[in-house]
Computed example of a mutant assay.
Amino acid sequence: MADTGGTVLGTIERIWRYPIKSTGGERLEEAAVDRRGLVGDRLYAVRDGDGRFGSGKNTRRFRRMPGLLRLASRYRGQGEAPELLDPDGEPVPDPTAHLRRHLGREDVELAREGAVSHFDQLPLSLLTTATLDWVRTAVPGVPVDERRFRPNLLVRTPPGTRPFVEDEWFGSAARIGEDLRVRFERSSERCVMTNEAQPGLPHSPLILRAIARAHDTRLDALATVTRPGRVRVGDPVRLIGG
C-alpha cells in the first residue's frame, strides 16, 4: 500500500514536456520521470556552427535565437525523433531546413543531446498556480499562462496560498503520486524569454520587469529526481522532509 503521509503542497494540474529546447512543448496526461527529468524533455536542441544551443540568452553554452518560441515540438512515437511544428501548429517535413529559413541562419541544425546537457540548470521545474496568479495580477491586460515560464509541472495550490510559496520548499524532499521522489533545490533566474511572443501570447516586457521588482527575477522551484517514477495529472505533491 502506498504511503499517504506528508503535508500536501498541492496537486498536479498540468504536465509539460519540451522535446526540442526553447520551442513550445506538449501537454501530457502522464509521463515517466528518470534522474535526467521527464523522459524526452529537451532531448533535442537547435545547435549552431559554434556548438551552442538555441535559447533565450547568450552564455558559453547557449545562443539567443529569437523566434524559436513561435515553433513547437512533440513526440509521435516512442524512440522516434520529435516533430517540429510551424507557427500554425503543422508538422514540417525537414526540421533543419525549416529552422534555417525560420531563423535566417544557415549554420543551425536539430541535434540530439550528447555529452553536453541541453538543460539550463536542473532536471525538473515546478510552478504553482499561486505564483502564476500573482503574475497575472502584476501585469493586468497582458495574457499570461504557464507557457511563459516553461515548467514541467504546474501545481494547483490551495486557496489562499501566497505567491512564491515555492521558496519555502527549498532543501526539502517531496513525493509526487505513488513513487516519484524529488528534492527541491532552488529557483530559476528568469531571462527575456518570459517576455517573448508565442502562439496566443504576445510579446510584453512587463512580465520580466514585474518579476525583477518583486522577486529578483526568480520564479519556480527547480528539483532533482531522487527516485524515478511516473507523474500523472491529479497526483498529490506531498512534502516528506529534508
Rank of each mutant, 00 (worst) to 15 (best):
V225T: 11
P199S: 10
L201A: 05
I207M: 06
A223D: 09
H215F: 05
H203P: 01
L222D: 04
M193P: 00
I211R: 00
L208I: 09
R218V: 01
C191F: 09
D220S: 14
T226L: 07
R218G: 02
M193T: 12
A214P: 01
M193C: 07
P205N: 09
L219M: 14
R218S: 03
L222Y: 11
L222E: 13
A212H: 12
H215W: 09
P199A: 09
M193E: 00
C191M: 06
T217E: 10
Q198L: 13
T194W: 05
N195R: 02
E196N: 03
N195V: 03
T224P: 07
A197H: 00
V225G: 12
Q198A: 14
R218H: 08
A210V: 05
V192P: 11
V192N: 10
M193G: 12
L219W: 01
H203G: 06
R213P: 00
H203F: 15
L208A: 06
D216N: 14
R227Q: 14
T224L: 15
A197G: 05
T224Q: 13
A210S: 14
H215K: 05
E196R: 01
C191A: 05
A214R: 07
V225K: 11
R209H: 14
P202Y: 02
L219P: 10
T217A: 12
A197L: 06
A212I: 14
D216G: 08
A212T: 15
A214Y: 04
T194N: 04
R218N: 04
C191R: 07
H215E: 04
G200V: 01
A221C: 13
C191G: 08
I207G: 04
D216Q: 12
A210H: 10
V192F: 12
T194V: 15
A214D: 10
D220M: 07
A214I: 03
S204F: 04
R218M: 04
A223M: 08
G200C: 08
D220H: 09
N195W: 01
L201R: 02
I211A: 02
T194E: 01
L219C: 11
A212V: 15
P202Q: 11
T226Y: 12
P205E: 12
L201P: 00
I211E: 00
D220P: 10
V225L: 12
V225H: 13
A212W: 09
P199C: 07
Q198E: 15
S204I: 12
N195C: 13
P205C: 11
A221D: 09
E196Q: 09
H215V: 00
Q198H: 11
A214T: 06
C191S: 11
R213N: 06
R227W: 09
E196V: 02
D216L: 10
A221Q: 12
A221R: 13
L206Y: 13
L222N: 13
R209N: 13
A212F: 06
T217M: 10
L201Y: 01
L219E: 02
A210T: 05
D220F: 00
H203C: 02
L201C: 04
T194I: 10
L201T: 00
T217N: 10
E196I: 01
P205Y: 05
E196Y: 07
Q198W: 02
N195K: 05
N195S: 11
G200T: 03
P205A: 11
V192C: 11
P205H: 07
